[in-house]
Computed example of a mutant assay.
Amino acid sequence: MFSESIYINTNFKNKFDSSDLNAVSPPAPQKKTTPHESCHRFSKVLLTSFTVYFLLLTTLFSVALITLFKKYSQLLDEKAIKKEMNYTELECTKQHSLLKDKVWSCCPKDWKPFSSHCYFPTIDSASYSESEEKCSSMGAHLMVIHSQEEQDFITKFLNPKAAYYIGLSDPGHRQWRWVDQTPYNENSTFWHTSEPSSDHEQCVIVSPRDSGWGWNDSPCSDKQKSVCQMKKIYL
């Protein structure tokens, strides 16, 4: 009797202990953010912000550098033009222009002014490429003709016993091109009758005939005079 009672109490105690442990078992503690983790997160945000700021600063600096380089290039070009013009005097006329700060239109001395350009007939004879190089050395190019009035103006100053290269040539397949890249307009050409006459004559001269001054094709290696053209200088 005594031993049985002890057995029952022992089982009851074991049962109580087991269920009681499950009932009062505390929940798992939540993980708290440590100061070290907060500092690490702040460092990442700071690094990202600094990277974005650095990229923005680099972009702005690049844009400023490109703009400065363009302005410097333009300044060099202007200085080069002025240097080319230092060899001669300018002849200027007062104008009424929409350009508020530009009062005078000028051409180098001995150049002929017409509309917005200046023209210079050369004295020496040379090939087409040599003639273009000579014009280029003066800040000009071979003459480009777009109207009868323009041609009539310049031919008044030309030798009627000579021919003059103009800035029109054929790189191939009779595709005529102006030296300043302006479009070739077939409705505004002044070819002599039966000209152009040969696929092997790829440069153009203006020359006199009984009918007056007009164009004909010529071998580019022929020695001819030429007419240089440049834009007027506005002061």
Rank of each mutant, 00 (worst) to 15 (best):
T51Y: 09
E89V: 08
I81P: 01
K231Q: 10
G167Q: 04
D217M: 02
H96K: 13
S62F: 10
H146Q: 04
H173N: 15
S188K: 04
S105W: 07
R174P: 08
Q30N: 03
Y87C: 02
C118Q: 04
D110H: 14
P208F: 01
S125N: 07
D152I: 04
S62Y: 09
K94W: 15
S226C: 02
K225F: 04
K31L: 10
K134G: 04
S105Y: 08
K32Y: 05
C39P: 00
S38N: 05
F12H: 03
Y128W: 15
E149S: 10
I205T: 12
S147Q: 09
L75H: 11
K94I: 15
G167N: 09
L168W: 01
K100Y: 15
K15P: 05
T88R: 07
C135K: 04
A162M: 15
Y164Q: 00
H173Q: 13
D17G: 09
Q95H: 03
L57K: 06
N11Q: 12
V45I: 13
T48F: 13
K223R: 13
E89I: 08
P171M: 12
Y234T: 07
W215E: 06
A140E: 01
L158P: 02
V179I: 15
T93M: 04
I8S: 15
Y53D: 12
H40Q: 10
D222M: 14
Y184M: 10
G214P: 09
H40W: 05
P113Y: 01
L76Y: 02
A64W: 07
D110C: 04
V63P: 03
Q30S: 03
K223S: 13
E133N: 09
K109H: 06
D180C: 00
P113I: 00
Q181R: 02
K156S: 11
C135P: 12
